[in-house]
């Protein structure tokens, strides 16, 4: 492991601590690297001897005092700020796009639905006495079957499309959550 990776990992795992505590800890390790290197060791060697940065960070976290932890109010403030920014972005760009995509999806679903209704109507056409004049019943049945086939094919395609759409929405919601919570924790 090189120094850069060591320090970055240490820093990341120390995130629950407040900025000044983190800086003090990181400074200690910077100094350690310098001392090791001035003795002729490579930074990789020093990092190796220091051990696992994640475990080290955990030792700090378990013994940290309350004053060293990230203060929640300041971060909740930041979370709210980030949240408001996202809201603005969503209102202007994302929501219109998502809403129109949703409308398109719904109208696409209307096609197999109407095909299905037509097929149904053809099946029971003798009862309805609508098409029976124009169309012999066997032809009506064949048409109905063809329409049913189309309905199934389109439904499968649309099911996939809807799945991706929902996945996109869920992913988008998760991203929002992460950004806001990340803002609070960071």
């Amino acid at each position: 492991m090189n120094k850069q990776i060591f320090m970055t990992q240490l820093k990341r795992h120390l995130m629950p601590l407040n900025l000044s505590t983190r800086q003090e800890i990181l400074a200690d390790f910077e100094e350690h690297f310098k001392d090791g290197e001035s003795l002729g060791k490579t930074a990789e060697q020093v990092a190796e001897e220091l051990g696992d940065p994640k475990q080290l960070a955990q030792q700090y976290l378990t013994t940290a005092e309350k004053g060293e932890k990230t203060s929640i109010p300041e971060n909740v403030g930041r979370g709210i700020f980030v949240g408001l920014g996202l809201l603005l972005l969503d209102a202007m760009i994302v929501i219109p796009i998502v809403a129109s995509l949703f409308a398109v999806l719904i109208s696409l679903w209307a096609i197999p639905l109407s095909l299905f209704v037509s097929a149904l109507a053809l099946f029971i056409s003798p009862l309805l006495a609508i098409f029976s004049f124009a169309l012999p019943y066997y032809l009506a049945i064949m048409t109905a079957i063809a329409l049913l086939g189309l309905t199934v094919a389109m439904s499968i395609g649309l099911a996939y499309l809807s799945k991706y759409f929902i996945r996109f929405i869920v992913g988008f919601a998760k991203m929002h959550y992460n950004i806001i919570v990340g803002g609070i924790k960071g």
């Binding site: 003090e24 200690d28 390790f29 001897e49 220091l50 051990g51 696992d52 080290l56 030792q59 700090y60």
Partner: peptide, 16 residues
């Protein structure tokens, strides 16, 4: 037999 880094959290606690 400990890794060098172990000492720093200890020093910090002793200081605290």
């Amino acid at each position: 037999d400990i890794s060098d880094g172990t000492i720093y959290p200890i020093l910090r606690r002793l200081k605290g």
